[in-house]
């Protein structure tokens, strides 16, 4: 039994070995088409349907795949190879099969505001020639752009219109008009982008948004305050308004070791201002004083009977006559009741 099993095992091992070392040549009725650039192989042979049914389907497919992979690898070996750090590397040629793109095709650009308007009105682009005849230079020049025909920026003289101010610089005026046109064009371009992406169209300066944050409101308020002829110098402030932060103003400090006497004087000035702002009559203090006097009076009235108790209490307030004595609790509450009655 044991020997039999050993033979079995040996035979099986041999079979496995043979399976592994399956010949690298694969015979196909029709040759495969290869695209080594993409490491692709197309098998045009029809699959053997009978075998497909008889054999296990998985096994059949696996062996078919193995054979085709073998053929592909054989093909790869035909390519020029080189050794790079103990690895054999084949140089792939250009791929011949065109693969479909990974991402979907981009959507067409949303029409600009002008394009929408032109479509609505039925305005169509008229093709114009790129070159036009320049009468002055007697040659063909571009219609627009660099070195264009009838270039009004290159004029050495401009006639001052009759209605214009004679002291006005016509060249500067033209330049300004040009930069403004460019700026307007740029703004329109950005607006078109914003519109196509469904972003809020940016306005000029601080555009009102639906939900303004605290900082935005503060900024808007600050801008509004500064927008006066005197740059907000004489604008009133709210009682507890804080100066705006991060306005680009740098903090400046006094020197660490400067003039100590002026520093002292400044601090004294601050103290004087603080003192002058205090109310002369502190209502709380006055009321307390009044209450205390009333207390004293009422104590005088009931005084003579409680001498012993007061003496006992006296040990705490021996030093300073300023500190009021704390009367015993019982007497306290009685006095309180009396006071309440008075009022």
């Amino acid at each position: 039994m044991a020997t039999c099993s050993i033979e079995d095992v040996l035979a099986k091992a041999e079979k496995d070995e043979a399976e592994k070392l399956k010949s690298i040549t694969v015979i196909k009725e029709q040759d495969l088409e290869f695209d080594p650039g993409n490491m692709l192989a197309f098998d045009k042979n029809p699959p053997d349907i009978r075998q497909f049914r008889e054999k296990k389907k998985d096994d059949f497919l696996r062996s078919l795949a193995r054979d085709n992979a073998q053929l592909l690898i054989n093909e790869m070996w035909k390519l020029p190879t080189e050794r790079v750090a103990e690895a054999i590397v084949a140089k792939l040629p250009e791929p011949t099969t065109r693969l479909p793109r990974e991402k979907p095709a981009p959507k067409p650009r949303a029409p600009t505001k002008w394009e929408e308007f032109a479509k609505l009105k039925g305005i169509q682009n008229k093709k114009k020639t790129n070159l036009v005849w320049d009468d002055v230079h007697k040659e063909w020049k571009r219609r627009w752009g660099y070195k264009r025909a009838k270039d009004d920026t290159k004029e050495w003289l401009i006639e001052v219109p009759e209605t214009a101010d004679p002291n006005e610089d016509q060249f500067a005026k033209r330049n300004k008009a040009k930069t403004e046109r460019v700026a307007k064009n740029e703004l329109n371009r950005l607006r078109n982008i914003a519109r196509s992406q469904k972003i809020k169209v940016p306005g000029v300066g601080l555009a009102p948004t639906a939900q303004q944050s605290k900082s935005e409101l503060g900024k808007a308020m600050h801008v509004a305050k500064m927008s006066t002829a005197s740059v907000g110098k004489f604008q009133d402030r709210l009682p507890k308004e804080k100066a705006p932060r991060n306005t680009g103003k740098r903090r400046k400090f006094q020197p660490l070791i400067g003039d100590f006497s002026t520093e002292k004087q400044r601090q004294l000035d601050i103290l004087n201002i603080m003192d002058s702002k205090k109310p002369r009559l502190d209502i709380n203090k006055a009321a307390n004083k009044q209450m205390r006097e009333e207390d004293m009076e009422s104590r005088k009235k009931t005084g003579p009977g409680k001498k012993g108790q007061k003496g006992r209490k006296g040990k705490f307030s021996g030093k300073k006559s300023k500190a009021p004595k704390l009367a015993p609790k019982g007497a306290n509450s009685r006095k309180l009741n009396k006071q309440k009655g008075k009022r």
Partner: peptide, 15 residues
């Protein structure tokens, strides 16, 4: 280290 600004001096003195 630096001297206090006027605002800082004022808050400190108030306290």
């Amino acid at each position: 280290m630096r001297p206090l600004t006027d605002d800082e001096t004022k808050t400190m003195f108030e306290k």
